[in-house]
């Protein structure tokens, strides 16, 4: 995976899956779904997101359901989530959707909304280009990075010929 640079949107603790992918999304057209992300807690936000932006959040990001919340913010154009801690199910869903979510303790105190964040995946460092603060992080295991680099689990299954025809 290449290094990432993007503008920060800052969120608090316990941002849950139902905020990222509200119940109504299930039966919407694919292209409409992302605009409902965070509509309950931050109305109008989804329309302000530009491709490549980064979400920085507090503790317990992605708590909740198995719904495709990671997919939804990925499809909105978010390039990566950086949080103080991340729910295990959200992390699995991110990896399986080919989307990067990193646990970086201390990140919230090192950034303001709108700062430009650079994620160096070779040196496992995030650098806030707006104030030059730098934090090292523990990388995801290579096993998980390989799933992300292969475009997610569906892609891997498809390439192995394990998926069939529409029901």
């Amino acid at each position: 995976m290449n290094n990432i640079e993007g503008k920060i949107w800052l969120f608090g603790d316990d941002i849950n899956t139902d905020l990222m992918y509200p119940q109504v999304c299930y039966t919407l057209k694919e292209e409409e779904k992302p605009f409902y992300a965070m509509s309950a807690n931050r109305p109008g936000w989804s329309k302000m997101v530009n491709r490549g932006d980064i979400i920085v959040a507090g503790r317990n990001f992605g708590t909740g359901s198995s719904r495709p919340a990671a997919d939804n913010i990925k499809n909105l154009g978010i390039s990566c989530v950086i949080a103080e801690s991340i729910n295990g199910l959200f992390l699995r869903n991110s990896v399986n959707s080919g989307f990067l979510a990193l646990t970086v303790p201390g990140i919230v105190d090192a950034v303001d909304e709108g700062d430009i964040l650079y994620i160096d995946l070779k040196n496992n460092t995030v650098i806030n280009k707006s104030n030059n603060r730098k934090i090292n992080f523990k990388p995801l295991p290579q096993f998980l990075m390989d799933i992300i680099d292969n475009g997610g689990i569906i892609n891997i299954l498809r390439n192995k010929g394990l998926l069939g025809w529409p029901l």
């Binding site: 359901s65 199910l89 699995r92 869903n93 689990i153 394990l162």
Partner: peptide, 20 residues
């Protein structure tokens, strides 16, 4: 534990998954 739908597709196909 809860798993996503893409992951259960992998489990149905292979019978396996991973945990940390």
């Amino acid at each position: 534990r809860g798993l996503g739908t893409p992951e259960i597709m992998n489990i149905i196909a292979t019978g396996k998954t991973w945990f940390v």
